[in-house]
């Protein structure tokens, strides 16, 4: 019985063709950088929300039909498809609705100090009407769903009307 390599012959190029950096340069590429700049209007509801953040306050909008207080505020309720009718100030305290301890940065590198991100449901508003933010002054292993939290604001003179006017949320002291 013939050996296998006698039938088919030995592989002609068992290691494949090695490509060097200069070989890749022979392949034509066209490079370009997009120039796409935008300035989005925040809208009636979010403009007021950002303005109040500057004042160190959290404001929502209430739907008269389902009685939810929407944070960040919206001019219409997406469930009822009705205009919201009332501005409502909230104390800013709330509970951790969900969180994740993030170990990977934007460039997919592993970070030493994990970043604590999550959703805060506000006191005075129903669940699933809260905002996303960071958590601080808490060890990762101590962070729990349902934990009472409060905002830590930047000093008034540093606030610009941005979600980052709140530095992070920390566990509420009793």
């Amino acid at each position: 019985m013939a050996k296998k390599h006698e039938l088919f012959g030995p592989p002609l190029n068992p290691l494949g063709t090695r490509l060097e950096a200069e070989d890749m340069e022979k392949i034509a590429h066209v490079r370009a950088k997009p120039n796409a700049k935008y300035a989005w209007a925040a809208g009636a509801a979010i403009s007021r929300f950002l303005e109040e953040l500057k004042n160190g306050r959290i404001i929502g909008r209430k739907c008269a039909r389902c009685e939810r207080v929407l944070v960040p505020p919206r001019m219409f309720c997406e469930r009822c498809f009705q205009p919201t009718t009332e501005w409502v100030y909230l104390p800013g305290t709330g509970v951790v609705e969900t969180f994740s301890i993030s170990y990977i940065d934007q460039n997919a590198n592993r970070v030493k100090e994990p970043i604590l991100v999550g959703v805060v449901a506000f006191d005075g508003a129903p669940p699933h009407c809260g905002i996303m933010h960071y958590f601080g002054e808490v060890k990762p292993e101590e962070l729990k769903i349902g934990m009472p939290v409060e905002p830590v604001w930047k000093p008034a003179e540093e606030r610009v009307g941005s979600v980052l006017d709140i530095k992070y949320f920390r566990p509420r002291k009793k």
Binding site: A32, P34, N35, A36, K37, Y38, A41
Partner: peptide
Amino acid sequence: SELLTYEHVVEMAYDPIYERP
């Protein structure tokens, strides 16, 4: 009105390899 670089985004719709250069 919120697109500040309209002309450049239109240009991005041109063939990137032959027409855009």
